[in-house]
Amino acid sequence: MTPDQPEAPALPDVVVPYGDTRGDGMVQLSFTLPLPHGKIAEGAAQQLANRMGMDPALVVHAKPIGPGFTFVVVYGRVHHHVDVAQVKVVERDYPLLTPREVNAVVKETLQRRLVVVGACIGTDAHTVGIDAILNIKGFAGEKGLEYYRELRVVNLGAQVSVPDLVARAEAERADAVLVSQVVTQRDAHLLNTREMSAAFREAFPDDRRPWLIVGGPRFDELMADELGVDRVFARGTTPGEVASYLAHRLRTREAAS
């Protein structure tokens, strides 16, 4: 901790949600029911909320969103607590670096530019995620990886098949492959990621396989091992976090060699 960083407040052992006053257990929940808008839909929403542990539960908003469908917001009390010691998350285990620092690490370690290949795979046509990380305009006030002098970025865009991604990564001699998945219906993001991981592990020996990094709003960062990738980034990830991770991996590999 540097002198200008304030000390983080101590976490409580147990927490409960609150809406009006601390500790009241009040939460807000929204969902859609396949029922036409009306009293039956609101009654069904309240009963569902009760069965989910909200008691009392009050329907505070309901509106039709199409023939036979109702969007509902329920406000009510839950009677559960969370043991903070049992919360499992992936903490960032590497320092955030500036673009200049990342460039210095790459130049010193590789003696060449680090090659990053990015894509949206399968039928996913949503490039907003991969573009936010790769494009020079970036995201959240940070420049994308194209801005980094010592990184060479190849953005393949959307709807890239896994075989094409593997072939392009091999042709470009990629050090890292970044995949964004926004479409998540029927766990498509998980199926596509597992397919990608298996294909890369079949095509590359372990010592030549590029780092596999996936990201998207519905990914669980704890699932990296299960999905067969090196890192999972969830929603809100910035280009600087990804660039710093790549520099961290380079340093780790250099130290192990």
Rank of each mutant, 00 (worst) to 15 (best):
D4C: 03
Q5L: 11
P6I: 06
E7Q: 10
P12Y: 08
Y18H: 13
G19C: 11
G19F: 12
G25D: 05
G25Y: 04
L29M: 14
L33D: 01
L35M: 15
P36F: 13
K39A: 15
E42K: 11
A49T: 06
A49L: 09
N50C: 00
N50P: 00
R51G: 09
M54T: 02
D55I: 13
P56V: 10
K63C: 04
G66Y: 09
G68C: 10
G68L: 10
F71M: 14
V72W: 01
H80E: 13
H80C: 09
D83I: 14
V84K: 04
V87Y: 01
K88S: 07
V89P: 00
R92G: 01
D93N: 13
L97C: 06
T98C: 06
P99A: 01
R100I: 08
V102G: 01
N103K: 05
Q111G: 15
H126C: 04
T127H: 00
T127E: 14
D131C: 09
A132G: 15
L134W: 05
L134G: 04
K137V: 14
G138W: 11
E142Y: 10
K143G: 06
E146G: 04
Y148T: 03
L151G: 00
V153D: 01
L156Y: 11
A158H: 03
R168L: 08
E170G: 01
A174D: 11
V177A: 07
V179C: 09
Q181R: 13
Q181H: 14
V182M: 12
A188F: 08
H189M: 11
H189V: 13
L190W: 12
L191N: 09
R194V: 06
M196R: 08
S197M: 02
S197W: 00
S197I: 03
A199T: 04
F200H: 02
F204C: 10
P205N: 03
V214F: 13
G215A: 12
G216K: 09
R218M: 12
R218K: 08
F219E: 02
A224N: 07
A224I: 06
D225T: 09
R231Y: 03
F233I: 08
A234S: 15
R235T: 06
S244A: 05
L246N: 02
R253D: 14
S257P: 07
